[in-house]
Computed example of a mutant assay.
Amino acid sequence: MKPLVPRWSHLRAVLFDLDGTLIDSAGDLARAANAMRRDRGLHALPLAQYRPHGGSGARGMLAQAFGVAPGDPAYDGLKREFLDRYETLMFDSTSPFAGVQAELAGLAQAGLAWGIVTNKAERFALPLVAALRLDAAVVVGGDSTAHTKPHPAPLLEAARRLGFTPQTCLYVGDDERDIVAGRAAGMSTAVAAWGYLGQDAEFAHWQADLELGSPGELLKSLGLA
């Protein structure tokens, strides 16, 4: 077993965002939104338009598909319809990003715990994690605590369940809110630059501790590869 590099010798656990960090779910999210458009006689939009907004779930998809946002009169009804539609096809094409399984195996071999903290509701997150055989030690969803990211509560809950202090955890995500939440929780942070990142994201300004271009770079940064 290779030791962690000195900078990371305190590390006991790595926590990950789900969509856009561990799994590529944008295709199924876009498919649900386009099915709603077709039902209304509208043409399908290209995946490239939806993809940067994959990390925002229903909010991101509905903004692209119908130009609505939370607070708009039609939003809540469209959101319920979208989530019901997505639930029927969320396993169709979603899969881990290339290199993710090796990354997770490397962490486990090094004796590091790993888990998932996502804004995706447990209704979707738990079945997806099980179906994709992501054997996380903990899964905290968007409705597991009273708050969602960028609030630190979900990250603190994950650390509590693992039995580690936040200061011994690293949080990896592809959205600025992930880095904000990680810092607020007292954790080290890393940007998953292979993810969705959001429109015109300048992640170099997010002040994360690591910027990772691919899953394999995490193991290298920790001295495990």
Results as ranks from 00 to 15, higher is better:
G111S: 10
G198M: 03
I179V: 15
V100G: 07
E81R: 15
D174N: 05
E122W: 09
D76W: 00
A102H: 12
E103Y: 07
R177P: 09
A121C: 02
E87Q: 15
G142S: 00
R183W: 03
V139G: 00
V129Y: 11
G115D: 06
D84S: 15
E211H: 15
E157V: 01
L78H: 08
E122H: 11
A184D: 10
I179W: 08
F124Q: 08
W194D: 04
A108C: 07
D84P: 05
I179T: 04
E202F: 03
H151R: 14
M90Y: 15
L107A: 01
V191T: 05
L104N: 07
A105D: 14
A208E: 06
L132E: 03
F203E: 09
E103D: 10
E176N: 04
A98Q: 12
G99D: 12
V100M: 10
D174L: 05
V191W: 02
A181S: 14
A193F: 01
A146T: 07
G99H: 08
Q109C: 08
F82R: 09
L83D: 14
W114A: 02
N119L: 04
R123D: 00
E81K: 10
G99L: 07
A121D: 13
R123A: 10
Q109A: 15
V129R: 09
L132I: 06
L112D: 10
Y75V: 01
N119G: 07
R160A: 14
L156A: 09
L197R: 09
Y196G: 02
F124L: 13
D135Y: 00
D92K: 00
T168K: 03
A136G: 08
R133H: 14
T94V: 04
L197E: 01
Q167G: 07
E122P: 05
F203N: 13
T148V: 12
V191L: 04
V129N: 06
D84N: 14
T165C: 07
G198W: 05
D92T: 02
L104D: 11
W206E: 07
A153S: 13
G111I: 09
G182V: 13
L134Q: 06
L170K: 06
A136L: 02
V100F: 08
G77W: 03
D174K: 06
E157C: 08
P73F: 03
R123L: 05
E202W: 01
L155Y: 05
V140D: 00
L128F: 12
L134R: 06
G99A: 07
L212I: 13
L210I: 14
R85E: 08
A181E: 10
R177D: 10
G71R: 05
D84A: 14
D92Y: 01
Q167S: 13
L162E: 04
W194V: 03
H151T: 06
L132G: 06
A130D: 14
E122A: 15
Q199S: 07
Q167L: 03
